[in-house]
Design a protein around this nucleic acid. Structure first.
Lengths: 96, 96
DNA sequence: AAATTTGGTTTATATTATAAACTACTTTAT
DNA sequence: ATAAAGTAGTTTATAATATAAACCAAATTT
């Protein structure tokens, strides 16, 4: 009847992060914070979870002297997102 | 950019309950438990929250000697559900 | 050189979800 | 008639989650 909603994606902020990353090759921490409107602390935690799940990659580097964290979605992440959307449809129906 | 996801509906079980109630005039506790696959305890709690939010009505009666709890979605509930779906679209895009 | 800003992380707290335990009663079997 | 098992839930305890607040290290501005 109802498909299971991947709990890692069924979170407002993590879903927003994935949504941004789906459309942009890669994005840094500050860009993600701006796009999602999240606090840095919350974003830091959720990025970590997405990375540990293998849904995104996280690269740390320096832009001049300032630290920079760059994120990108993985193939696994894309697949998980698509599955999540398919599961949602079982709750929402054609409506979505 | 991203619309807020009503936290009362952004819950797997509550969303499933609302989804069932959208399609059936009314449903009793047992039917909801069967359709959602939830435990009775979890269902009881979530029904309570939906009722307190004004998204569903809950009527207690007896069917013969056995207690019966009957739920139905309210207009407010329908509206909230539709808004939730619209908000989801901001994360999902055309895909859904 | 002191104050502020940037780019984060860690930690503490509040909320949520969930299952386990319990209540109250009914039905069935002995 | 009574013990055992089932039904329809509720309450309570625990685990997981989300979130913000506090913090840190370095850079920039005044």
């Amino acid at each position: 009847m109802f498909k299971e909603l991947n709990p890692l994606l069924h979170s407002e902020l993590r879903l927003a992060v994935m949504s941004v990353l789906l459309s942009v090759e890669s994005a840094d921490f500050v860009f993600l914070r701006e796009q999602t409107g999240a606090t840095a602390g919350n974003l830091s935690v959720q990025i970590d979870k997405l990375q540990k799940a293998g849904y995104i990659t996280v690269e740390k580097s320096f832009k001049g002297k300032m630290p920079r964290t760059t994120c990108a979605i993985t193939q696994e992440g894309v697949a998980a997102f698509e599955e999540y959307v398919a599961a949602l449809r079982s709750y929402i129906g054609k409506g979505l």
